[in-house]
Design a protein around this nucleic acid. Structure first.
Length: 305
DNA sequence: ATCCAGGGGTCAC
DNA sequence: GTGACCCATGGA
């Protein structure tokens, strides 16, 4: 491990590693990263190179340690860019905080969730598959299904006896049969959607680059919902989590509705006028507001539901 | 047993 | 464009 594998990333203002860590370590059985005390370890492919890295808090900086032996010369630089993007470290969120502070029911978030960033999922294929998995089932079971998929068909790097998994490649999922996924307790519908979406990636019909190339959110949304299994909720989730489009609201999301209800911001699940009214005050920061509202679901006072 | 869960497709109007 | 209905599967 030479000096090249030590990387430091300066923390921006209104950024809390602890809050981001909290999000990544919610009470779910996540299989794509490991939390150990106050550090995160994850594996990924960067331009085809498999890297395992550990993030930890260094006060004014975040330190990144590459665990994989013999990383390529450009690995540190690419990894740094990945992490800045992953934890949304380059964004100035102070305008969002000003909007929160101006809202009596949401003001507390600027203190209780201070420094939380919109943590992304870089891989569009992974995001869409994750959406399909999570559609209409409880999150606990969704994470279970994801783990089965990842450990069944993904790849891993092993460091000191621990396996760090990477989400399966589109080519692998595209070649599966519906029956193989049904054995993992995927419904027929989920199995068909995932195989179909994976094939679309293999054939080059979908890619993150192609989506980015579209000029407007509306065109990106249309392009996504044209895919079988991708509805408006999934499209908005993917735009928010992978393209970091900040104008996206996953309408109908049960967690979002529960959070709005907890804050007494809506009367019932069909109160779309109240939802529109709230989000109209957060133009340009809708996705951040959604993310913070999801965060609020873990607040003990809102847990009794 | 019954209802719900970070939806989506289809089909009628 | 909107609404009713079906699809699936585990968890509480």
């Amino acid at each position: 491990m030479g000096p090249n594998s030590a990387i430091s990333i300066p923390k921006p203002g209104l950024f809390s590693f602890e809050e981001c860590l909290w999000f990544l370590n919610r009470n779910y059985d996540e299989c794509l990263h490991h939390i150990n005390g106050s550090s995160i370890t994850k594996a990924l492919f960067l331009d085809g190179e498999c890297l395992v890295f550990t993030l930890s808090d260094e006060g004014k900086n975040i330190s990144v340690k590459i665990e994989t032996p013999d990383p390529s010369p450009r690995a540190p630089e690419k990894l740094k860019a990945f992490i800045i993007d992953w934890l949304d470290m380059e964004r100035n969120v102070s305008p969002f905080y000003r909007l929160l502070k101006a809202h009596p029911a949401l003001d507390y978030m600027t203190r209780d969730f201070a420094g939380l960033r919109l943590i992304s999922i870089a891989d569009l294929h992974e995001t869409l598959c994750w959406c399909i998995i999570g559609q209409q089932i409880n999150l606990g079971f969704a994470y279970k299904l994801k783990r089965r998929l990842v450990e069944g068909f993904g790849e891993f790097a092993e460091i000191n006896g621990t396996r760090y998994w990477i989400f399966p490649r589109p080519e692998v999922l595209a070649s599966l049969s519906v029956e193989q996924l049904k054995q993992l307790q995927f419904s027929r519908q989920k199995a068909e959607y995932i195989i179909h979406i994976s094939k679309q990636f293999c054939e080059g019909n979908i890619s993150k680059e192609k989506l980015f190339a579209l000029p407007t959110t509306e065109e990106r949304r249309k392009s996504l919902t044209a895919i079988r299994g991708v509805g408006i909720w999934t499209a908005n989730y993917a735009l928010m989590k992978t393209l970091k489009d900040l104008n996206c609201i996953p309408h109908g999301d049960i967690g979002l509705l529960n959070a709005l209800s907890n804050h007494e911001l809506i009367k019932d699940r069909k109160d779309s006028k109240a939802i529109e009214k709230l989000f109209s005050k957060f133009r340009g920061w809708e996705s951040y507001l959604v993310f913070y509202l999801w965060r609020s679901l873990a607040v003990p006072a809102f847990q009794s539901k």
